[in-house]
Simulated scan of single mutants.
Amino acid sequence: MNKFKILTINPGSTSTKFAIYDGQEAELEINLKHDTTQLKKFNRTIEEFEFRKEAILTALHQKEVEFESIDAISARGGLLKPITGGTYIVNQQMLADLKTGIYGEHASNLGALIAQEIAEEFDIPAYIVDPVVVDEFEEVARVSGHPKFERKSIFHALNQKAMARKASTDLGVDYQDLNLIVAHLGGGISIGAHKQGRVVDANNALDGEGPFTPARSGTLPAGDLMRLSFSGDYSLSEVYKMIVGQGGLTAYCGTADAKEIEEKIKGGDQEAGFYYRAMAYQVAKWIGAVGTVLKGEIDAIVITGGIAYSKIFTEMIIERIGFMAPVKIYPGENELKALAQGALRVLNGREEPKIYN
């Protein structure tokens, strides 16, 4: 297998992470944290393009990176039309959709745009890998309960797919031949049913489905939410912030930091302990629900994401779901490596690149 050098780019809401990979090994990793006062001067995400691109180039020049040695650029995919999982060539249709923000605005939209501009200068390919809009749902999974609402596939596709592949390697079985449940535990929490290489169901981790998280409310009682929304006491934006950003542990305990919660628990804060257990309870319950999608035929359950570093939290989950299948824990988000791996599968001829249209 040939070794290729890959520049990976992952723009987040207040940071830009990027790395140089030589094969699957990181030679350089940088996390640029952006001052929120700098970002506030931009009215739209697309306006941050030059600012973010120059920040990346400046940091790479300071590290004396030789751009001529880079074989490809692989970026986090943004909000695009629903697509199947895989590695996609950055093309003009993709760039146009990201520039207009027709499917929504998010910092991840900038990944392909920055990648393409740098790639053109050095005549190398640019890719995106498993964006959050990966949609491989079975049709029955789209049904919500009312025809005016359809369940959408929005989840941590990049890390979920990468960790599912890691589990398949550890199990010695092809990803396409396994049934897995993958739970990504971070600021948002997504739980996906991976059926022979396709994520056939997952909770909408963006805005209001699944277990509550450090900052999101998850599924709320619909009637109570409706009555609160029409009470006249809250605006639409205030209600949305209750669901996304100021829900979950933030609402219950005043912080979204799991480490801080655990420190409170160690200090004897019983209320913090109760809500931490409640979050683990809900995660376990959703894993159980996803098990029914796979009809109980589960080869392994994978727990990943930042909170997977917490032995306390993962043990609370495992004591409820351990009977279902073997549990594998891969802490962290691993997104930069997943981006490199996606490009490498194409460059090594193991996977055909996909076309966005």
Rank of each mutant, 00 (worst) to 15 (best):
K5P: 00
T8I: 04
I9P: 00
N10S: 09
N10E: 08
G12N: 09
T14P: 04
A19N: 00
Y21K: 01
E25Y: 13
I30K: 04
D35W: 11
Q38W: 13
K41G: 08
E48G: 07
F49A: 10
K53G: 06
T58I: 13
A59K: 08
Q62I: 09
S69N: 15
D71C: 10
D71I: 09
G77Y: 02
L79Y: 05
K81D: 13
T84Y: 11
T87G: 05
I89D: 06
Q92A: 13
I102N: 11
G104V: 04
E105G: 06
N109Q: 09
A112N: 07
Q116W: 11
E117K: 15
A119Y: 12
E120W: 07
P125N: 09
A126M: 08
A126Q: 01
I128C: 02
D130Y: 04
D130H: 12
F137S: 03
E139M: 15
R142M: 04
V143N: 10
S144R: 00
K148Y: 07
F149G: 01
F149I: 15
E150L: 11
K152S: 10
K152M: 13
F155I: 09
F155C: 08
A157M: 12
K161E: 07
A162Q: 04
A162V: 02
M163F: 04
A167M: 09
A167C: 14
Q176Y: 03
I181R: 03
V182Y: 02
A183F: 10
L185N: 11
A193Y: 04
H194D: 05
V200Q: 01
A202M: 09
A205C: 12
L206Y: 08
G208H: 05
E209H: 06
P211T: 03
A222H: 10
D233F: 01
S235T: 15
S235L: 12
V239L: 14
V239Q: 10
V239N: 02
K241W: 02
K241V: 01
M242S: 02
V244G: 02
G245K: 03
Q246R: 08
A256G: 10
I261A: 07
I261Q: 08
E263I: 06
K264W: 07
E271D: 07
G273P: 00
A280R: 04
A280Y: 03
Y281Q: 09
Q282H: 06
A284V: 01
A284N: 05
K285E: 11
K285V: 03
W286F: 14
W286A: 00
W286H: 13
G288K: 01
V293R: 07
G296K: 06
E297K: 15
A300Q: 07
G306M: 11
G306F: 12
I312S: 12
E315T: 14
I317E: 03
A325R: 00
P326L: 10
P331D: 13
G332L: 11
A343H: 02
R345S: 12
P353W: 11
I355K: 11
